[in-house]
Design a protein around this nucleic acid. Sequence first.
DNA 1: ACAGGACTCACC
DNA 2: GTGAGTCCTGTG
Length: 803
Amino acid sequence: MKIAEVIVDVSAYPVDRPFDYSIPETMEELIECGCRVKVPFGNRDILGFVVAIKNETEVPPDKLKPISVLLDIEPVLTGEMLELAKWMKRETISYEIDCLQAMLPSALRAKYEKMVILETDVKNLEEPLQPFFQHATKVDYKEFEKDGLLIPLKKALKMHLLSIENVVKQKGKIKEVRKVKIAADQNLLQMIYEGLSNRAKKQKQLVLWMQKHVGEIMEPEVIHEETTCSPQVLQAVIELGAAEYIFEEVYRNPFKKDVEKTDFLTLTAEQETALKDILDAMDKGSPETFLLHGVTGSGKTEVYLQAIQHCIQQGKEAIVLVPEISLTPQITNRFRSRFGEQVAVMHSGLSVGEKYDEWRKVHQQKVKVVVGARSAVFAPFENVGLIILDEEHESSYKQEDSPRYHARDVAIWRGKFHQCPVILGSATPSLESYARARKNVYKLLTLKERALKQPLPSVEIVDMREELKKGNRSMFSEKLADSIRDRLKKKEQIVLFLNRRGYSSFVLCRDCGTVMQCENCDISLTYHRYNEKLKCHYCGYEQPVPTNCPECGSEHIRYFGTGTQKVEEELTKLFPEARVLRMDVDTTKRKGAHEAILEDFGAEKADILLGTQMIAKGLDFPNITLVGVLSADTSLHLPDFRAAERTFQLLTQVSGRAGRAEKPGEVIIQSYTPEHYAIQFAKEQQYEPFYKKEMMMRHEAAYPPYYYIALIQVSHEDVMMSAEYAKRCADYLRSSLSFDASIIGPTTAGIVRLQNRYRYQCLIKYKIEPNLIPTFLQLMKIYRTEWIKKGIVLTIDLNPTMI
DNA sequence: ACAGGACTCACC
DNA sequence: GTGAGTCCTGTG
């Protein structure tokens, strides 16, 4: 008898291991590793993944159960993915099932539904229950819940008049279209033709026409059009057997429009050199990691495109990762225009079904290239020849919840598995990666010049303290206002960037100084004008704007801070003639809104584009000649050791939006701390000196890349409990790790109370700590077997992006 | 004596 | 995670 090892769809510590199931004979020939199955687990059916097949088991026969349903004839996960999941599980301290699920589109996840089944005659049921079973013997449990009929339901269950069945379904569906298949037999058609009475003129005409299209498959609409026959006529002919309906799988099309084919651009000498190194590695089949450091506008994408071309020519596939926010049609179209139908695109803007279809294109080997956000790193190609991570420094490559994997690490793992190179590209590499490149762990490739030899835009810093002294209390310095006026006159375009983090507008009572706070978190609420509500960005809590202060009852309530909406107001006041487009969370919530705004701006339907982080990247319009950063410092003073790095990266990226074509660009950065090195070096657009300075700072403070860090968070509804167990954590770590590791804390987390839970954290800095993962696994074990019962929640984040 | 709630355990 | 089984308490 064959036995399958199955990882079951339950994220919990005691079941985070394979369970053995016997394989029924009917499945023996079909089942493979990586297939999804339905298995009985406890007293219900759940989903699971087959991770191994073997001939014997230790499980006593009376406990062994058979797999109930095989869900895939073709496995959804390759052997590589199963192995990768095991590695990820250990590397990120998470459950194997979560790792496996992370690799698949959500459409393949299980949907569990409770159904209530009628076991008797309807008349035997209590009055209120009867209507449910008038027309069906199976009714969704939720219906009873909704109508508050759980009590009579429970009674009926007890009396066995009804029973409950748990059903497992897949979330996503494969889309099918109905087509007409004309009979392949010419003689049959002839016979049908002859059998038709002369009065059936239209039918005769249709069958005659079909004889010219024997065996063809076409859409009904096409037939109607070609033959001017009504659907009824077609239906009649089909009933005679001249044709049949068939259902064909189709892919939903997530692209709004087709793109024109583009050709290769001529490379500069620098691009040529970089490309050559990459191609060599591909030819040798060497799993090298390259760091492609190219200034904004240096044509990194063209290097990617030509490397991918080479990859396809070798008969292999390529994965391109792009940060979510810059996954605009502008970017994806560059890949589609070069490689056409061979490209699949994966990002969060797609519907569940669309994502599923793009995934299936890859799974069925219908495409050669995937362009997508973080999770596309799991694209199920079997013959990967190249993996690219664009904007390598972006923090969105790290998943913020379990499994907390970093796409960069997964990419490098897959590169090793497939013996292929990985390219990390950025104008402002993360310090970690740049340090590795300097130590020759990665191979550094540099593009110093812009591809069209345009000069980098000139950058000017305006000291806002001086403006204040001059009596200018607006958010636009004189210099910036003048420049905006100038561009408006010249009909050139402007991008204004508002560094939003920590800058959202809060609401304050002017009499008692109370700031409106979230009920569940220690964080001030943000004012949203479009629906006149106050919102918590952390837990989603919402309330209407109060007319009186909840503390003192005063009516003197004021909105503070500079949200994009406020900037927009002031902008229209100052430049009434300017057409302003605002791009932020509010205006891009609707699907496709993001694209629509950029399209309008590209078509020069507006003069000024005002936005947050999301406009910092990928924006490539020739007519932008001025970029203004309203306040450079807001991200600088966050309590995070990466604050300077982030600010530098952001300013450099934003500056890169200006002067990308013939017209020279100008950048104006407003700041209250213009002397800060992150701002000064961003002005010079010099990465190297910034890197040196920042490395010094990191060295002094013992932060990455000199040390690795791990963050342990403990939370509980009760402050004391939280503090107590955080202390226990720290004590445990101190006793288990070497003296070289320093354990900081427990300290309170950045936001002490979140969703009504108090949070403490420990930070671990270490260099080489062979015992680290085992220690964490042990800590996790203690937590999951003891502390979890007390209501403690503990998370471990290795290499966190924010602390 | 028994219902209902907290707690523990196993799930193949 | 979740239902089943156990123990325990409160109530009539």
